[in-house]
Amino acid sequence: MLAKRIIPCLDVKDGRTVKGVNFVSLRDAGSAIELAEFYSRSGADELVFLDITATVENRGTMVSLVEEAARRISIPFTVGGGIRSEEDVGRMLSAGADKISVNSSAVRAPDLIDRLAGRFGSQCVVLALDARASRSMPSGYEAVIDGGRTPSGLDALAWAREAASRGAGEILLTSMDKDGTKSGFAVDLTRVISTNIDIPVIASGGAGRMEDFRNVFVEGRADAALAASVFHFHEIDIPELKRYLSQSGVPVRQRGEYDDRFR
């Protein structure tokens, strides 16, 4: 049975993780690679590296990080942040990224999705869709860009449908109302999008407790759930989360004894 995926997100600035990470087990808490390996061993199903580097000059650091991650990590990973062109995507995929995500740049030029899907395949094109509740939109949600600062004027569901028809392979859906609140995922938003499009939806924003993951899978119909700080601050332990989800009837991949035996 296809498992629901748990995806830790690592914010990376100039090649280092940000958001105070406090794992005592890591020699270098700022090393994105060490943290990624830790999550991979803990049973994370995929990883997302989000490049929040402010300057274009430092983007080369991200390419080196992706090359290192591809050498060392045996689970799929997505690279997002600052990806605006086919050249950006080509560089990340050649460095070893499995998928890339595009956000504001795709809202501004939707045919970017067609070009990326046509050249690299839908399987590696993730549309990052940031949404906020809006009574003036038919679905009740509006797509926002520039980290939530700019309303796009697009209905979130209409944009999700358009992105899917243009060739996006997955949607990474972040609730800007919930992001950073730890009050639970936006279950209604996730259900509205996930049940009305035919590509997988990764829910993001608001994870605080293990129950939140259950709710977004069962009621929100998410295919995957992404979180950052609850994992980084060790408030939720991935193996424990997976045991909890499994007991709650949510299909998840639990690493078996044989996984360790072969290491």
Binding site: L2, D45, G169, D198, P200, A224
Partner: peptide, 28 residues
Amino acid sequence: GFKIPHVGWNTISGLSGPLYRGLPEDSY
């Protein structure tokens, strides 16, 4: 509601042959 692509971790069963030596049924 049938989503394409089929993406993620899924179980494999009816494992036969040397490729799966040492792996249990329903490995992900």
